[in-house]
Amino acid sequence: MRILMLALTATMLAGCAGSVMNDARTQTPYKVLNSDKAEKVVAQCVQFGWQDEAVFGVDAAAYVEPRNAGGTTVYTRSAESFVDVITDASGTTLNYYAQKDDFVAKRRLAALATCL
């Protein structure tokens, strides 16, 4: 029963994060960046950077999932920050979204920028 409850909770949270991300994608990204590196390499780098507990403390969780429209999304809990990493003709484009324009959003952006 506990496993079932845990799985149900995880599914509900993923659904909430998905709707938050879809709503955010209708707006202009917080920042758009470009890279010459491969999409998967950039996505893994961002995930690793966002999981740095020395920088983000105990809330240093980052998850990766494929986007329905192609590409990869790296996101934090509740999708407070997320980045769509998309391969296009000019290389790799990163659309970074943040729910708040605060210190944490700027730190996540800085960590993301090290992956370009």
Rank of each mutant, 00 (worst) to 15 (best):
residue 2 R to Y: 08
residue 2 R to T: 13
residue 3 I to V: 10
residue 3 I to W: 08
residue 3 I to N: 13
residue 5 M to E: 14
residue 7 A to F: 12
residue 7 A to H: 08
residue 8 L to H: 07
residue 8 L to S: 12
residue 8 L to N: 07
residue 8 L to K: 10
residue 9 T to F: 15
residue 10 A to L: 14
residue 11 T to R: 08
residue 11 T to G: 10
residue 12 M to Q: 15
residue 13 L to R: 11
residue 18 G to I: 02
residue 18 G to H: 13
residue 19 S to N: 13
residue 22 N to V: 04
residue 25 R to S: 14
residue 25 R to D: 12
residue 26 T to I: 05
residue 26 T to V: 06
residue 27 Q to Y: 02
residue 27 Q to L: 11
residue 29 P to T: 00
residue 32 V to N: 12
residue 34 N to W: 10
residue 35 S to G: 06
residue 36 D to A: 13
residue 36 D to L: 06
residue 36 D to I: 03
residue 38 A to D: 14
residue 38 A to P: 04
residue 40 K to R: 01
residue 40 K to N: 03
residue 41 V to R: 03
residue 43 A to K: 01
residue 46 V to P: 01
residue 47 Q to W: 00
residue 48 F to R: 12
residue 48 F to K: 12
residue 49 G to Q: 11
residue 52 D to Y: 07
residue 54 A to G: 10
residue 54 A to Q: 12
residue 54 A to I: 09
residue 54 A to C: 05
residue 54 A to D: 13
residue 58 V to F: 15
residue 59 D to K: 09
residue 61 A to G: 15
residue 62 A to E: 01
residue 63 Y to T: 13
residue 64 V to C: 03
residue 64 V to A: 09
residue 64 V to T: 10
residue 65 E to D: 07
residue 66 P to Q: 05
residue 66 P to H: 04
residue 67 R to I: 06
residue 67 R to G: 08
residue 67 R to H: 09
residue 68 N to H: 10
residue 69 A to R: 10
residue 69 A to P: 00
residue 70 G to L: 02
residue 71 G to K: 07
residue 73 T to I: 15
residue 75 Y to K: 12
residue 77 R to E: 11
residue 78 S to P: 00
residue 78 S to Y: 07
residue 80 E to M: 08
residue 81 S to E: 15
residue 81 S to C: 15
residue 82 F to T: 00
residue 82 F to A: 02
residue 85 V to A: 04
residue 85 V to Y: 00
residue 86 I to P: 02
residue 87 T to V: 04
residue 88 D to Y: 09
residue 89 A to Y: 12
residue 89 A to P: 10
residue 90 S to V: 09
residue 92 T to N: 06
residue 92 T to F: 03
residue 93 T to C: 02
residue 93 T to R: 14
residue 95 N to F: 14
residue 97 Y to S: 00
residue 99 Q to L: 11
residue 101 D to G: 04
residue 102 D to M: 00
residue 103 F to V: 09
residue 103 F to N: 11
residue 103 F to C: 06
residue 104 V to H: 07
residue 105 A to D: 06
residue 108 R to F: 09
residue 109 L to M: 05
residue 110 A to Y: 14
residue 112 L to M: 15
residue 112 L to A: 09
residue 113 A to E: 15
residue 113 A to Q: 15
residue 113 A to S: 14
residue 115 C to I: 03
residue 115 C to L: 06
residue 115 C to H: 04
residue 116 L to Y: 02
residue 116 L to F: 04
